[in-house]
C-alpha cells in the first residue's frame, strides 16, 4: 500500500481538480450592454445591462455605474435595477473625446468591479471634451469572493483549462519519461528500458489524441473553427506524427536490440524537434494560445490565484495517471516476453 502512495496522490489530485474545477462559480461579469440612442450627445440615454452571476438586486444600494472614454469617467444619473442580472442605467448626454467607444464599469461591494471593454458605440463625432465628468465612488476594487475570472467569449469554458491543457502536459511528461528511458537504454543496452520508452510513447499518443479532440471542440466555441491555423496546434500535430513514425520505424526492424538502438536515436531526434516546434516556433510566430506572439501567458493573466492550484493539481494528477498506465503496459509487456 505504502509503495503505491503516488498513485493515491494522483487520484486525489485529479479528484480535487475535477471537483474544484467544476464546483467553483464563475465571477460576476457583464455579458452585454445595449444603448438606447445612436447619438449620445443630444439627450439623456439609457443603457440596458445583462449580467452573469451578478447580484444587482441584493447590492442595489451600493451599485454604481459609469462610462469611460479616454480615461475620463461619466457617471450614471440613476441605476434602475430590474432583477439580479438586469439593470437599466440612465446617463446624461455625453460626447466622446477620442474614440467613439465607451468602456462600461459597474461597482458594488458584493460583486466588486465589473468591466466591459468597448461596451457602447456612439455615432457622434469626436469632440473636445466630455460634458459631465464625475468621480465614481469605489471603496475597494478587491473582489472578496472565491470564483474563476469572468472572460468575455470564454465564460464558463475557462474551466477547460483544467481538462484540455493537462492533456498536453501529460503527453510532454510521458515523452520526456520516454526520452529518459532512451538514454538509460543507450547507456547499458538493457532492453527493459527500451520497453518502458516504447510503452510511454504509446500512452503519450493517447493523451495527445485527447488533447487534439478536446482542443478542437474548445476552439470551435471560442475561435469559431474546428481547426485553426495556429503554430502551437500544428506543432503538436506534427510532434504526434513524428512519434507515429517512431512506431512505424519500430515495426520495420526485426532484431530486438537493433530495433531498440535505432528507434531510441530517432526518438531523441523527435524530442528535440518537438522542443523546437512547441517551445521555440510559437514564440517567433503569432499564436492564438496564451503566452505566444504578444498574447499574455498563463502566469500573469489567464491563470489567476484561484485557478492556479487547481490547474497544477490537474496537471500533476494527469501526469501521474499517464505514468501509471504506461507502467501497467510495461508490466504486461514483460509478462508477455517471459511467457513467449
Amino acid at each position: 500500500m505504502l509503495r503505491n502512495w503516488w498513485k493515491f496522490l494522483g487520484v486525489l489530485l485529479l479528484a480535487y481538480s475535477i471537483y474544484a474545477g467544476l464546483a467553483t462559480p464563475l465571477a460576476p461579469g457583464i455579458i452585454s450592454a445595449k444603448s438606447s440612442a445612436t447619438y449620445t450627445s443630444d439627450s439623456t440615454f439609457t443603457v440596458t445591462v445583462f449580467g452573469y452571476n451578478t447580484r444587482f438586486q441584493t447590492e442595489q444600494s451600493g451599485l454604481h455605474a459609469w462610462l469611460m472614454n479616454n480615461d475620463k469617467p461619466v457617471c450614471a444619473i440613476r441605476v434602475e435595477v430590474i432583477d439580479e442580472t438586469h439593470a437599466v442605467l440612465h446617463f446624461p448626454p455625453v460626447a466622446p473625446i477620442k474614440d467613439p467607444l465607451f468602456t462600461l464599469k459597474m461597482h458594488s461591494t458584493g460583486d466588486g468591479l465589473l468591466v466591459m471593454e468597448n461596451a457602447i458605440w456612439t455615432a457622434d463625432t469626436v469632440t473636445a471634451g466630455l460634458t459631465q465628468v464625475c468621480q465614481p465612488k469605489v471603496a475597494s476594487e478587491d473582489q472578496n469572493y472565491h470564483a474563476y475570472p469572468f472572460r468575455y467569449i470564454l465564460y464558463e469554458s475557462i474551466r477547460n483549462l483544467f481538462l484540455h491543457v493537462p492533456m498536453w502536459f501529460a503527453m510532454i511528461a510521458l515523452l520526456s519519461w520516454s526520452l529518459y528511458n532512451n538514454f538509460r537504454y543507450l547507456r547499458g543496452f538493457n532492453i527493459n528500458y527500451d520497453h518502458r520508452a516504447h510503452e510511454s510513447v504509446k500512452v503519450a499518443l493517447v493523451f495527445g489524441m485527447l488533447g487534439l479532440i478536446t482542443g478542437s471542440i474548445w476552439a470551435r466555441s471560442t475561435w469559431g473553427a474546428w481547426w485553426v491555423d495556429d503554430t502551437k496546434l500544428n506543432g503538436t500535430a506534427i510532434t504526434m506524427l513524428s512519434y507515429l513514425a517512431y512506431l512505424v520505424l519500430r515495426n520495420s526492424i526485426e532484431d530486438e536490440q537493433k530495433r531498440a538502438r535505432v528507434s531510441s536515436i530517432y526518438s531523441i531526434f523527435a524530442y528535440v524537434m518537438m522542443l523546437v516546434l512547441i517551445g521555440l516556433l510559437p514564440r517567433l510566430n503569432d499564436s492564438l494560445h496564451p503566452g505566444n506572439g504578444g498574447n499574455p501567458a498563463f502566469s500573469n493573466y489567464d491563470l489567476d490565484n484561484t485557478m492556479r492550484p487547481v490547474f497544477y493539481a490537474a496537471v500533476l494528477g494527469w501526469i501521474i495517471i499517464g505514468i501509471w498506465i504506461s507502467g501497467i503496459r510495461y508490466r504486461m509487456r514483460k509478462l508477455k516476453e517471459a511467457h513467449t
Partner: peptide, 16 residues
C-alpha cells in the same frame, strides 16, 4: 455560458 463545452470536453476525456 459555454458550460456545455466544458461538459463535452470532460465527457470526451473520461470516455477516451
Amino acid at each position: 455560458a459555454s458550460m456545455n463545452v466544458v461538459i463535452v470536453v470532460a465527457m470526451l476525456i473520461l470516455a477516451g
